[in-house]
């Protein structure tokens, strides 16, 4: 088991109207390459902050401290397309990604300042972009080599909760997916467009040819989320982060999207971080579950163990509060009915 990502003592504070609100209070965990890790918690637990911090998407004004270590030794060639040599590179760093993928490069470590002083504001904190996928300009600490820090879109795919706001409403969805492929894989536009079509087939969108030209408002909520997933995996990232990606959908569509994520992660050998408030949903998908509460890691364990023998009282509480199809109805517990 090799760690794709090591999170050590991650601390995030938001400043709101002059008041500091801690969102994460020193969280440490390792994300194993190829695993499906679920991070669960209730509102205010810091689960989304954790996802955003890993993706480098925290809003400006967030102070972060601690270490995020991304293992560059795992890096690999772009999955399906080698960079065409005749094309001008969009950024000199993009070529290096491929060339440094020889399995020998040292891990990239982001050393983020110690708590309390002015240097705490991390250059990692970029502005929150409006879109789910890559092509987002990020700010990274200068200490990290361009070829080593994980890049959103290229190395990390991110799927947001609400596809209606993460997709551009005035751009056909095919173009939005192709843009990610074009930016990160250095494809020509026709190649990127062909790739977008393949991706729409992979996420099982009916009639991919017409879907390429469709605008987000012409698609249902579930279809939009499929498009957002296609865009997130367009550059063949090693890590896919799904932040409450099924919470806005109804039960049936939610089950379909979870099945889709499971299949795509298996096919591409991606690592998955699945953020959810629903412990049963997380348990149906994840190998391991991390439970967050008030910005602290309460319990982390293999799914079966955590569900059957929770060690922390809070985890037990979450399990008991779950209203499954086999739970004893509240109507009976109260011993009265009409």
């Amino acid at each position: 088991m090799t760690a794709l990502l090591s999170i050590r003592d991650l601390r995030v504070r938001y400043r709101r109207d002059g008041i500091e609100v801690p969102a994460l209070k020193g969280v440490g965990l390792e994300v194993v390459a190829g695993e499906r890790l679920a991070i669960i918690g209730e509102s205010g637990s810091g689960k989304s902050t954790l996802a955003l911090a890993v993706a480098g998407l925290l809003a400006r004004g967030a102070e972060i401290g601690g270490t995020l270590e991304w293992s560059a030794s795992q890096s690999q060639m772009p999955r399906s397309f080698a960079p065409p040599s005749g094309l001008p590179a969009i950024s000199p760093a993009r070529g290096e990604i491929g060339s440094s993928a020889d399995g020998s490069s040292p891990p990239a470590t982001l050393e983020i300042g110690e708590g309390g002083d002015d240097g705490l504001i991390s250059p990692l904190a970029g502005e929150m972009p409006g879109r789910a996928e890559g092509g987002v300009p990020e700010r990274r600490p200068p200490a990290i080599g361009e070829n080593q820090a994980p890049r959103l879109g290229r190395d990390i795919g991110f799927v947001f909760q609400d596809p209606s706001s993460s997709l551009d409403p005035v751009m056909p969805v095919g173009k939005q997916i192709a843009e990610v492929a074009c930016t990160h894989l250095e494809l020509t536009w026709p190649e990127a467009f062909a790739k977008a079509k393949t991706l729409l087939q992979r996420v099982r969108l009916p009639d991919p040819d017409s879907a390429l030209r469709a605008y987000p408002h012409q698609l249902s909520g579930g279809q939009k989320q499929r498009v957002a997933i296609a865009a997130a995996i367009a550059a063949g990232p090693r890590l896919l982060i799904a932040d409450e990606a099924t919470s806005a959908l109804d039960t049936i569509v939610q089950a379909e999207i979870v099945a889709l994520i499971r299949r795509l992660v298996a096919e591409d050998g991606m690592t998955l971080i699945f953020i959810s408030h629903d412990i049963a949903l997380a348990a149906s998908l994840a190998d391991r579950i991390a439970v967050l509460r008030h910005g602290e890691l309460v319990e982390l364990g293999e799914t079966r163990r955590l569900i059957e023998a929770p060690r922390h009282a809070y985890t037990r509480g979450l399990l008991e509060a779950h209203l499954g199809l086999d739970a004893k109805p509240l109507l009976d517990r109260q011993g009265a009915s009409a």
């Binding site: 039960t251 089950a255 629903d278 412990i279 049963a280 348990a283 149906s284 569900i307 779950h322 199809l325």
Partner: peptide, 13 residues
């Protein structure tokens, strides 16, 4: 049937 099948379950002894 589809709704029941899609409801997440906690399978624990």
């Amino acid at each position: 049937k589809a709704l029941v099948a899609a409801t997440p379950r906690l399978t624990r002894s």
